[in-house]
Structures are given as C-alpha cells and as structure tokens.
C-alpha cells in the first residue's frame, strides 16, 4: 500500500485502549483488547454478532464501565472523564436512535438541544443537514414515513450535529440496500475529509474494504488489525470473508 504510506498522516491518536476487558458474570465479552485509532481515520471493527463489538464501543462511549484495562478517547480517560468524552463524541447505534413519532425537524432540534446548542446554531445546522440528506421537502414529515436509508443518514447527521471530532457508529448499515449503503459510506468519507475520526462496527465482511484499517474480533478477542489490503495480501485471499476464515483456522 504505497498510497497509504505516501499520504501525509497526522498520527495523532484519537482512541487508545490497552488490554481493555469487560466481563458479564462469567462471560468475557471483550478480552484484553489493545488498539490505537488515529485522527482522520476510518477504523473498522469487524466481527459476528456477539463477538464483542458493541460492548467495546459502549465502553469507549462511557455507557459501560470496563472490568479491566485502560483506555482514552480524545485524550480523556474512559474511567474518570466520561463527561468530557461525551461532549466530544458522536454516537449512532444499530437500534434506531431517531424518534419515529417526531418529525425530521423535531428530531434534529431535540438532539441539538440535548447537546446544549444554541437555538440559532441548531437552526443553522438543521437546515444544512436537511439539505445534505436531501430531505428539504420532508422536514415536517414524521420520521416513521422515511425509508431506512434516509433514516440512517439522518441519524448520522444528528450524531454529528454538535460537531464532535470522533464518531462511533455501531452497525450503521444493518439492513439497508447496497445503494443506500454506498451513499451512507459516501457520507462517512465526507466526514473524515473534515478531519474527523470514524470508528465503525459491522458484521458485513465486505464492508471492511471501505475502512482504512480494520480490526477483527472473535469471541471477545482481537485476532487481527491492519489495512484490508495488507490482510488480504498476507493471507493470500481475495476478500475479507476468506481472510477471516483463514485467521480463525490459523
């Protein structure tokens, strides 16, 4: 990957964990995971349902306390400074984070308000967001009437409303068609182009190709971390699906 190396990359760390572990009773959902995510990067977290991706993301967002290990997000400690972290991250989960019984406009205003943005700022960003997602004619429609693809792009927009430097996306493309998925990824590329860091989980192995670097999780453990190209090259496979299988059988 000469292109990657040639690119001037500010190697500022956005997210860092060291032997981060989370147990639920006897079950270890995340087992000593250490990663470093750089600013401006799309960092993919791959794995099946139950591999520990969601637990990992929840610990980083301050929704779950780790059992062991250490971690920092935007330079703040995940144990002690979750308030500071919450102000600097955007989060969008696989379950829908928009209110179906609110209009598009009301949803945006609500999220703006929750982050304590001023009215003027909310109005300004709301208009920009509605334009970006292409929903000008539908601002006063109830969100439940929107197709899934639009909802997901809108949810991402809401998560970005307070202009956070780091965005966590938990299986954001679950269930949408390829067209909507690609336009969602276009939005992610636009976001990193602004210098933001995107941390994304997915169980679609082919989505790994969209990421700059991927880490693969299985049964709570990190089993690989590299660029998709290097992983494919290393295992001599043509796609990430086969890389995963090769990794497990290794």
């Amino acid at each position: 990957m000469t292109t990657n190396d040639a690119k001037p990359m500010t190697r500022q760390i956005s997210v860092k964990t060291e032997k981060l572990t989370r147990r639920f009773g006897k079950f270890t959902a995340v087992d000593r995971v250490s990663i470093e995510v750089y600013q401006g990067e799309i960092f993919g977290f791959l794995g099946a349902n139950g591999a520990g991706k969601t637990t990992m993301i929840r610990m980083l967002c301050g929704l779950l306390a780790p059992s062991e290990g250490s971690g920092s997000v935007a330079g703040y400690d995940i144990y002690r400074q979750s308030e500071a972290i919450k102000r600097r991250i955007g989060y969008m989960s696989q379950k829908f984070s928009l209110y179906d019984d609110l209009t598009i406009s009301e949803n945006i205003e609500f999220y703006g308000g929750v982050y304590g943005l001023s009215r003027a700022l909310i109005r300004e960003r709301k208009e920009a967001l509605i334009r970006q997602v292409g929903l000008e004619a539908f601002a006063d429609k109830l969100t439940r009437e929107l197709p899934l693809g639009f909802k997901q792009r809108l949810a991402l927009g809401c998560a970005l409303l307070h202009d956070p430097p780091i965005i966590f996306l938990d299986e954001p493309t679950s269930g949408v068609d390829p067209e909507a998925r690609r336009s969602f990824w276009d939005l992610i590329y636009q976001t990193v182009a602004l210098g933001k860091t995107v941390f994304v989980t997915t169980h679609f192995m082919d989505e790994a190709e969209y990421c700059h670097r991927v880490s693969i999780m299985r049964e709570g453990k990190l089993i690989a971390l590299d660029t998709p190209a290097k992983l494919k090259q290393h295992y001599g496979k043509s796609n990430m699906q086969d890389v995963f299988v090769a990794l497990v059988k290794e």
Partner: peptide, 13 residues
Amino acid sequence: ELGTMEQILVSPV
C-alpha cells in the same frame, strides 16, 4: 426498549 435512551446517555445530559 427502543434504544433511544442509549443515544441520550452518550450525550453530556
């Protein structure tokens, strides 16, 4: 149940 609580909890509220 809807999962929207999660979204609110990650904010500084």
